[in-house]
Protein backbone atom coordinates (compact mmCIF):
# COMPACT_ATOMS: atom_id res chain seq x y z
CA UNK A 1 0.00 0.00 0.00
CA UNK A 2 0.96 3.63 -0.32
CA UNK A 3 -0.78 6.78 0.93
CA UNK A 4 0.66 10.16 0.14
CA UNK A 5 -1.24 12.78 2.08
CA UNK A 6 -0.97 16.55 1.91
CA UNK A 7 -2.15 18.03 5.22
CA UNK A 8 -2.96 21.70 5.07
CA UNK A 9 -4.30 24.47 7.23
CA UNK A 10 -3.34 27.68 8.96
CA UNK A 11 -0.51 28.02 11.49
CA UNK A 12 -1.95 27.35 14.94
CA UNK A 13 -4.74 25.01 13.74
CA UNK A 14 -2.77 21.96 14.83
CA UNK A 15 -2.44 19.92 11.64
CA UNK A 16 0.54 18.17 13.17
CA UNK A 17 -1.73 16.38 15.63
CA UNK A 18 -3.42 14.70 12.65
CA UNK A 19 -0.03 13.78 11.24
CA UNK A 20 1.04 12.28 14.57
CA UNK A 21 -2.07 10.12 14.72
CA UNK A 22 -1.63 8.81 11.18
CA UNK A 23 2.06 8.23 11.90
CA UNK A 24 1.30 6.26 15.04
CA UNK A 25 -1.24 4.11 13.20
CA UNK A 26 1.26 3.52 10.40
CA UNK A 27 3.97 2.43 12.80
CA UNK A 28 1.57 0.01 14.50
CA UNK A 29 1.08 -1.47 11.05
CA UNK A 30 4.86 -1.76 10.49
CA UNK A 31 4.67 0.59 7.54
CA UNK A 32 7.45 2.87 6.35
CA UNK A 33 6.82 6.57 6.68
CA UNK A 34 8.25 10.03 6.21
CA UNK A 35 6.53 13.14 7.39
CA UNK A 36 7.76 16.58 6.60
CA UNK A 37 6.51 19.39 8.82
CA UNK A 38 6.46 23.15 8.77
CA UNK A 39 8.11 24.88 11.69
CA UNK A 40 9.18 28.48 11.89
CA UNK A 41 7.80 31.66 10.53
CA UNK A 42 4.62 30.48 8.77
CA UNK A 43 3.36 28.94 12.02
CA UNK A 44 2.50 32.51 12.95
CA UNK A 45 -0.95 32.44 11.28
CA UNK A 46 0.37 31.75 7.78
CA UNK A 47 -0.47 28.92 5.38
CA UNK A 48 1.05 25.65 6.61
CA UNK A 49 1.42 22.24 5.00
CA UNK A 50 2.73 18.89 6.07
CA UNK A 51 3.59 15.99 3.78
CA UNK A 52 2.68 12.58 5.16
CA UNK A 53 3.92 9.54 3.27
CA UNK A 54 3.03 6.05 4.40
CA UNK A 55 3.98 2.95 2.43
CA UNK A 56 4.67 -0.76 2.64
CA UNK A 57 7.91 -0.01 0.75
CA UNK A 58 10.68 2.37 1.79
CA UNK A 59 9.83 6.03 1.18
CA UNK A 60 12.37 8.08 -0.80
CA UNK A 61 11.49 11.76 -0.98
CA UNK A 62 10.48 13.65 2.16
CA UNK A 63 8.14 15.73 0.03
CA UNK A 64 5.34 14.42 -2.15
CA UNK A 65 5.90 15.15 -5.85
CA UNK A 66 3.33 17.28 -7.63
CA UNK A 67 0.65 15.19 -9.26
CA UNK A 68 1.22 12.24 -6.90
CA UNK A 69 -0.76 12.90 -3.71
CA UNK A 70 -3.54 10.42 -3.02
CA UNK A 71 -5.25 12.80 -0.68
CA UNK A 72 -5.41 16.40 0.37
CA UNK A 73 -6.67 16.67 3.91
CA UNK A 74 -7.31 20.26 4.90
CA UNK A 75 -8.66 21.74 8.10
CA UNK A 76 -9.46 24.96 6.21
CA UNK A 77 -11.36 25.20 2.90
CA UNK A 78 -9.31 27.81 1.03
CA UNK A 79 -6.09 26.08 2.10
CA UNK A 80 -7.32 22.83 0.55
CA UNK A 81 -7.13 24.50 -2.86
CA UNK A 82 -3.62 25.88 -2.46
CA UNK A 83 -1.99 22.47 -2.98
CA UNK A 84 -4.20 21.22 -5.81
CA UNK A 85 -1.27 20.67 -8.22
CA UNK A 86 -0.06 17.97 -5.85
CA UNK A 87 -3.21 15.89 -6.22
CA UNK A 88 -3.00 12.88 -8.53
CA UNK A 89 -5.72 12.33 -11.11
CA UNK A 90 -8.64 10.84 -9.19
CA UNK A 91 -7.15 11.78 -5.81
CA UNK A 92 -9.45 12.89 -2.99
CA UNK A 93 -9.84 16.37 -1.55
CA UNK A 94 -11.21 16.35 1.98
CA UNK A 95 -11.73 19.59 3.78
CA UNK A 96 -13.40 21.19 6.73
CA UNK A 97 -16.07 23.70 5.72
CA UNK A 98 -15.16 26.35 8.31
CA UNK A 99 -13.13 29.22 6.91
CA UNK A 100 -10.34 30.66 9.03
CA UNK A 101 -10.40 34.36 8.18
CA UNK A 102 -7.28 36.18 9.33
CA UNK A 103 -6.62 38.10 6.12
CA UNK A 104 -8.47 41.02 4.57
CA UNK A 105 -8.92 39.57 1.10
CA UNK A 106 -10.36 36.17 2.04
CA UNK A 107 -12.48 35.15 -0.97
CA UNK A 108 -16.24 34.60 -0.85
CA UNK A 109 -16.61 31.25 0.92
CA UNK A 110 -19.34 30.12 -1.49
CA UNK A 111 -16.93 30.63 -4.38
CA UNK A 112 -14.32 28.60 -2.51
CA UNK A 113 -16.77 25.75 -2.05
CA UNK A 114 -17.83 25.98 -5.68
CA UNK A 115 -14.20 25.60 -6.66
CA UNK A 116 -13.81 22.56 -4.39
CA UNK A 117 -16.92 20.97 -5.89
CA UNK A 118 -15.27 21.10 -9.31
CA UNK A 119 -13.24 18.08 -8.23
CA UNK A 120 -15.40 15.03 -8.46
CA UNK A 121 -13.72 13.33 -5.51
CA UNK A 122 -14.31 15.71 -2.66
CA UNK A 123 -15.74 15.72 0.83
CA UNK A 124 -16.68 18.97 2.57
CA UNK A 125 -17.43 18.35 6.19
CA UNK A 126 -18.47 20.69 8.99
CA UNK A 127 -16.01 19.20 11.46
CA UNK A 128 -16.27 22.11 13.87
CA UNK A 129 -20.03 21.66 14.37
CA UNK A 130 -19.73 17.90 14.63
CA UNK A 131 -17.11 18.29 17.35
CA UNK A 132 -19.16 20.93 19.13
CA UNK A 133 -22.27 18.74 19.03
CA UNK A 134 -20.50 16.09 21.05
CA UNK A 135 -19.20 18.82 23.40
CA UNK A 136 -15.62 18.28 22.35
CA UNK A 137 -14.78 21.30 20.20
CA UNK A 138 -11.07 20.46 20.33
CA UNK A 139 -11.68 17.14 18.58
CA UNK A 140 -12.46 18.80 15.27
CA UNK A 141 -9.11 17.70 13.82
CA UNK A 142 -9.90 14.11 14.80
CA UNK A 143 -13.25 14.43 13.00
CA UNK A 144 -11.19 15.42 9.94
CA UNK A 145 -8.92 12.43 10.40
CA UNK A 146 -12.01 10.22 10.59
CA UNK A 147 -13.30 11.77 7.39
CA UNK A 148 -10.01 11.00 5.65
CA UNK A 149 -9.63 7.50 7.06
CA UNK A 150 -11.72 5.62 4.45
CA UNK A 151 -9.26 6.84 1.83
CA UNK A 152 -6.13 5.70 3.66
CA UNK A 153 -5.21 2.04 3.44
CA UNK A 154 -4.82 1.58 7.16
CA UNK A 155 -7.33 -0.49 9.08
CA UNK A 156 -9.92 1.39 11.10
CA UNK A 157 -8.96 -0.46 14.27
CA UNK A 158 -5.39 0.80 14.04
CA UNK A 159 -6.55 4.40 13.90
CA UNK A 160 -8.60 3.76 17.02
CA UNK A 161 -5.58 2.21 18.71
CA UNK A 162 -3.47 5.20 17.72
CA UNK A 163 -6.03 7.60 19.19
CA UNK A 164 -6.08 5.57 22.38
CA UNK A 165 -2.31 5.63 22.72
CA UNK A 166 -2.03 9.36 21.97
CA UNK A 167 -4.81 10.58 24.29
CA UNK A 168 -4.30 7.95 27.02
CA UNK A 169 -2.51 10.37 29.30
CA UNK A 170 -5.48 12.76 29.21
CA UNK A 171 -7.97 10.31 30.66
CA UNK A 172 -10.54 7.82 29.39
CA UNK A 173 -13.22 10.46 28.82
CA UNK A 174 -11.05 12.35 26.33
CA UNK A 175 -10.12 9.07 24.62
CA UNK A 176 -13.81 8.21 24.25
CA UNK A 177 -14.69 11.66 22.89
CA UNK A 178 -11.96 11.44 20.27
CA UNK A 179 -12.99 7.95 19.19
CA UNK A 180 -16.53 9.25 18.84
CA UNK A 181 -15.25 12.21 16.82
CA UNK A 182 -13.25 9.86 14.61
CA UNK A 183 -16.26 7.63 13.97
CA UNK A 184 -18.55 10.57 13.15
CA UNK A 185 -16.06 11.88 10.61
CA UNK A 186 -15.55 8.43 9.14
CA UNK A 187 -19.27 7.74 8.79
CA UNK A 188 -19.83 11.09 7.16
CA UNK A 189 -17.33 10.26 4.43
CA UNK A 190 -18.62 6.72 3.98
CA UNK A 191 -22.11 8.10 3.43
CA UNK A 192 -21.08 10.98 1.21
CA UNK A 193 -18.44 9.49 -1.07
CA UNK A 194 -19.77 8.70 -4.48
Amino acid sequence: MKSDIILSGVGGQGILSIATTIGTAALMNDLYMKQSEVHGMSQRGGAVVSNMRVSSNPVASDVIPMGKADLILSVEPMESLRYIPYLKPGGWLITSSSPFVNIEDYPDIEKVKEEIRKYKNHIIIDADSIAKDIKSARSSNIVMLGAASPFIEIEESLFIKAIESIFKSKGSEIVAKNIEAFNLGRNYSLQNKK
Binding site: V10, G11, M41, S42, Q43, R44, G45, G46, A47, S61, V63, P65, M66, G67, M78, E79, L81, R82, I84, P85, L87, P89, N102, I103, D105, Y106, P107, D108, K111, V112, E115
Partner: peptide, 29 residues
Protein backbone atom coordinates in the same frame (compact mmCIF):
# COMPACT_ATOMS: atom_id res chain seq x y z
CA UNK B 1 12.27 18.61 -5.25
CA UNK B 2 11.37 15.45 -7.20
CA UNK B 3 9.56 17.43 -9.91
CA UNK B 4 12.53 19.72 -10.63
CA UNK B 5 14.79 16.68 -10.82
CA UNK B 6 12.32 14.94 -13.16
CA UNK B 7 12.41 17.95 -15.45
CA UNK B 8 16.20 17.97 -15.52
CA UNK B 9 16.11 14.26 -16.41
CA UNK B 10 13.64 14.90 -19.21
CA UNK B 11 10.96 12.77 -17.56
CA UNK B 12 7.52 13.80 -18.77
CA UNK B 13 4.99 14.48 -16.04
CA UNK B 14 1.31 15.25 -16.18
CA UNK B 15 0.52 17.94 -13.70
CA UNK B 16 -2.74 19.32 -15.04
CA UNK B 17 -4.31 20.79 -11.95
CA UNK B 18 -3.66 24.48 -11.51
CA UNK B 19 -4.15 26.61 -8.41
CA UNK B 20 -7.35 28.59 -8.75
CA UNK B 21 -6.89 32.35 -8.87
CA UNK B 22 -9.59 32.98 -6.28
CA UNK B 23 -7.08 31.96 -3.59
CA UNK B 24 -5.43 34.72 -1.56
CA UNK B 25 -1.98 34.65 -0.03
CA UNK B 26 -1.87 34.02 3.66
CA UNK B 27 1.42 35.43 4.94
CA UNK B 28 2.41 34.99 8.59
CA UNK B 29 1.44 37.86 10.86
Amino acid sequence: NPNLVAKALGIKENIDLKVSDIISNRPPA
